[in-house]
């Protein structure tokens, strides 16, 4: 049996709920995972109770105030036992996973979507193929969200370990976000617009629906490149963000392979496009052949009625 260690995914208020999925992923190796909660305030680790960890360690350090790859890897390494380490596959956690693996002179496997008998499967070639590798000995594995079910139960309290590491970078400025809206990389529901929206002003229709259902607004590269008001931070795809929400609604997006690369693993995909032959329909669970002008008002009214 392999000793497994899970690094909690953090939000500003505590442990992110997706951490319970990481614990399920770790349990595929047998045994009871140790959860490490990187925090400046040990009470934040209380929010990990009920997520299924065998034990919970609040790794307390000022290092964790802001993300610094070097400092975080050192501070986590010194409190984490030897074994296979599971992290989230968020951009920050993939970076940490790589750094931690290098610190221990072991390998890292990123973006796991399946773990079975020491075989780890991840998408490669932007999701155009799946690759399974066999791991031999302690490895660091980052795990995609929304794939493993959440674990429950487990340890009922956290123990606190003080730790530290050398921070290399320093923050010069927190830059204001271009918009106050939810970021696509943080959302469970995303509604994205493409060139078919006709103008950046028409994104207000997507925003209105997003507000109704708590979604983030995304965009295709054509929209980002054509319209200045649509920032690159909204771009989904090969050269934008890779997202994995429960629901992805693509509006006026043709479904180019580079766009699919960023969103094809979404649990449910809805496509609204006036062209019945648009490639996006081959990937949609629900495809509506219509102009957005026709479909979005109906969709919005129905959603408003449902959400009360």
């Amino acid at each position: 049996m392999t000793q497994t260690i899970v690094i909690a995914e953090m939000t500003t208020n505590g442990v992110h709920s997706s951490t319970a999925e990481l614990i399920t992923a770790a349990m595929t190796f047998g045994g009871e995972p140790t959860l490490i909660v990187p925090c400046t305030d040990a009470s934040l680790a209380d929010s990990a109770v009920g997520m299924g960890a065998g034990s919970i360690i609040a790794a307390k350090s000022d290092v964790f105030a802001n993300y610094d790859a070097s400092g975080w890897a050192a501070a986590i390494d010194s409190v984490a036992p030897v074994g296979t380490v599971i992290t989230s596959a968020s951009p920050q956690s993939k970076d940490l996973a790589a750094r931690l693996a290098a610190k221990r002179n072991i390998s890292v496997v990123q973006d796991a979507v399946k773990i079975q008998n020491n075989t780890v499967t991840s998408p490669v070639y932007s999701g155009k193929a799946m690759q399974s590798v066999s791991i031999n000995g302690p490895t660091v594995i980052s795990v995609r969200s929304n794939i493993f079910p959440a674990a429950t139960g487990g340890a009922s309290s956290a123990s606190v370990l003080d730790t530290t590491g050398k921070i290399e970078t320093s923050v010069q400025e927190f830059m204001a976000r271009a918009s106050q809206r939810l970021d696509v990389s943080e959302a469970n529901i995303i509604i994205s617009g493409g060139r078919g929206m006709g103008s950046p002003d028409n994104f207000s229709h997507l925003e209105a629906i997003a507000d109704t259902i708590g979604a983030a607004v995304g965009a295709s590269r054509a929209a980002v490149d054509t319209w200045e008001p649509i920032p690159h931070s909204m771009q989904v795809g090969q050269t934008g963000k890779t997202v994995n929400p429960n629901l992805y609604i693509a509006v006026g997006i043709s479904g180019a392979i580079q766009h699919l690369a960023g969103m094809r693993s979404s649990k449910y995909i809805v496509a609204i496009n006036k062209d019945a032959d648009a490639p996006i329909f081959q990937h949609a669970d629900y495809g509506i052949v219509a102009t957005w002008e026709e479909a979005l008002p109906v969709l919005h009214d129905s959603l408003k009625a449902m959400m009360g």
């Binding site: 790859a69 070097s70 890897a73 951009p91 993939k94 970076d95 940490l96 996973a97 790589a98 750094r99 693996a101 290098a102 610190k103 890292v108 496997v109 990123q110 973006d111 991840s122 998408p123 490669v124 070639y125 932007s126 290399e168 970078t169 090969q238 890779t242």
Partner: peptide, 20 residues
């Protein structure tokens, strides 16, 4: 673009003992 992993930069930095 093949693996999509993003491990090389941070892993190399750690082994060199550098910031990343």
């Amino acid at each position: 673009a093949d693996t999509g992993a993003g491990s090389t930069g941070p892993g190399l930095a750690e082994r060199l003992g550098w910031a990343s």
